[in-house]
């Protein structure tokens, strides 16, 4: 399907490009937002990335998926944009924090409504820092393989594995803190 539209666009029928926009705009937006933490900027980045992808489409060699190639453009555009603002994120010293029990976390999380879950997880990802939240989004939400993440982010395979493990742990810690404060507020 993707190849059909790709060939269509390369043959000069640009209407075929709307398939790629519809297919990848939301994930591209999630990726951009995780890096810049601003909705307007993220939307602008997605737009610029699609323009850039369209201009460079003839250079896409098809040895990787279109999505992988495109998300790399999104990441680069987002990093360029973020470099102008230099946002700082929370840093958590993992050595001082005990392991979080998966069972406790799961039951506490599932007691929340869908909207609350969405609100809390997005808050946590915002606090987590761009690299960690980006890796978690790519691996767990978009289900990219480690190899694809290497291609998208230019981080080495070993580093990705290590960072994913840490990011996951950090996410649990932050989520647990958020849930505790929420319970306290309710009481």
């Amino acid at each position: 399907m993707e190849l059909f539209y790709l060939q269509k666009v390369l043959a000069g029928d640009i209407s075929g490009f709307s398939y790629f926009i519809d297919q990848y705009k939301d994930m591209a937006y999630s990726i951009a937002y995780r890096i810049v933490n601003n909705r307007e900027d993220a939307e602008e980045i997605v737009q610029d990335s699609f323009m850039k992808a369209y201009r460079a489409l003839h250079s896409f060699r098809q040895d990787s998926k279109f999505s992988t190639w495109f998300y790399r453009i999104v990441v680069n555009q987002s990093l360029t944009k973020r470099a102008r603002y230099k946002t700082e994120f929370n840093t958590i010293d993992l050595s001082k924090i005990p392991d979080v029990a998966v069972d406790q976390m799961e039951s506490a999380y599932q007691k929340m409504t869908h909207d609350d879950q969405k609100k809390y997880i997005n808050l946590v990802l915002e606090e987590l820092g761009s690299e960690d939240s980006l890796l978690l989004t790519l691996f767990y939400l978009n289900e990219n393989s480690i190899e694809e993440i290497v291609e998208i982010t230019s981080i080495t395979r070993e580093n990705i594995k290590m960072k994913l493990h840490r990011a996951r742990k950090k996410m649990y810690v932050l989520l647990e803190q958020k849930l505790k404060s929420e319970i306290k507020n309710l009481l």
Binding site: I21, D22, S30, Q47, Y109, I121, L141, R168
Partner: peptide
């Protein structure tokens, strides 16, 4: 668990004219 939690973190572009405007630009 991480997969379950992150399933709720997907963001969407709210602008309904996004594709149309972008195609216009292209």
């Amino acid at each position: 668990l991480t997969r379950t939690i992150l399933a709720n973190s997907k963001l969407e572009i709210k602008n309904p004219d996004f594709t149309f405007n972008l195609m216009d630009k292209i």
